[in-house]
């Protein structure tokens, strides 16, 4: 493989990797605060992509404009799912009946419901959005950089920074961090833990609303696209250390480059084997993640 192909693969990997990191932010946040692995994480991203697609197909809205709708919509979906579906589990947990896999099962149920509602509504066909930005590239040192991917990459970094800032300095952010540290102590200090959970979950999903719309211009969608994104997000979070926001972006970059370079050697369809292989290798060698505490 010549240097040009390699550097192209690396740049492409960095761009898509940043987006992976952005997609994984919500998973990391939710796990960090609630200790819940959201199995339906990828499904919510898929839902956001379909929303954006629908707005484009019916109203002709540019996917970037549809962000104004997808972000609040996904926030509401997340808020509702946590408030109605997941919160009974926490209420029960207070009575000391702790089932570690319950939350995973519950969100697996949500995954089935969401994926198949979309399948029912849209059918299994592959859909894509045709907008000009898909084909626009800028050249840096002779290498073409796809504009849509670059925007996604930059958005991931901006969102990660904004989220960190917001968590540090806002009233709600402080409440979220306090709840993550100690739920009962937070509750005793007058924090409404239920509301914090609802907001956290909603926020984690709202980020997906943004990236769903940003992905649509260069990513074809099918109803079952979610699971692979969900697993990749989990991998990203494990790589970067669970609960860490910069770790999430870093893990994303790592996965993106790895995947992009690996796919130079095999066909696109088998490239997924490498991500899964990396996932297993990381978990076996460093179960706490590259940057997590052992």
């Amino acid at each position: 493989m010549d240097l040009l192909t390699l550097s192209f693969a690396v740049i492409n990997g960095l761009l898509i990797g940043g987006i992976y990191g952005g997609v994984a932010l919500g998973l990391s946040l939710i796990f960090g605060v609630m200790r819940v692995i959201n199995f339906a994480h990828g499904s919510f991203l898929m839902l956001a992509m379909y929303c954006s697609y629908l707005l484009w197909a019916s109203l002709g809205l540019h996917p970037y404009v549809s962000i104004l709708a997808t972000v609040p919509f996904l926030f509401i979906v997340g808020y509702f799912v946590q408030g109605v579906v997941i919160s009974p589990l926490f209420k029960r947990e207070r009575a000391l009946v702790v089932e570690p896999t319950s939350a995973l099962l519950l969100t697996a149920g949500v995954y089935l419901v969401v994926d198949n509602i979309v399948l029912m509504a849209f059918g299994p066909d592959v859909r894509s959005v045709a907008v000009d930005i898909t084909y626009e590239s800028i050249f840096v040192a002779g290498l073409p950089i796809n504009l849509a991917r670059l925007i996604g990459f930059l958005a991931a970094i901006v969102v990660a920074a904004a989220l960190s800032f917001w968590l540090k300095h806002s009233e709600m952010g402080r409440a979220i961090r306090a709840t993550a540290q100690n739920r009962d102590a937070a509750s005793l200090s007058g924090i409404n833990v239920q509301r914090v959970y609802n907001v956290t979950f909603g926020l984690g999903c709202a980020v997906l609303g943004l990236f769903g719309a940003l992905l649509v211009p260069f990513f074809s969608i099918t109803p079952n696209i979610g699971l692979s994104f969900g697993i990749k997000s989990f991998l990203v979070v494990v790589l970067g250390g669970i609960g860490s926001i910069p770790g999430s972006i870093l893990g994303g970059l790592l996965l993106g480059v790895f995947e992009s370079v690996a796919s130079q050697f095999v066909t696109a369809t088998s490239a997924a084997i490498f991500s899964f292989g990396l996932f297993i290798a990381i978990l076996l060698l460093r179960p706490a993640g590259l940057m997590g505490r052992a």
């Binding site: 579906v85 009946v97 319950s102 099962l105 519950l106 149920g109 995954y111 089935l112 198949n116 029912m120």
Partner: peptide
């Protein structure tokens, strides 16, 4: 005519079972 409807029901049953009959 509704692909995937049975899986929606499976998902709902799973959710209900985890909440009410763990």
């Amino acid at each position: 005519s509704f692909l995937g409807l049975h899986l929606i029901l499976y998902g709902l049953m799973l959710i209900l079972a985890v909440i009410y009959f763990p």
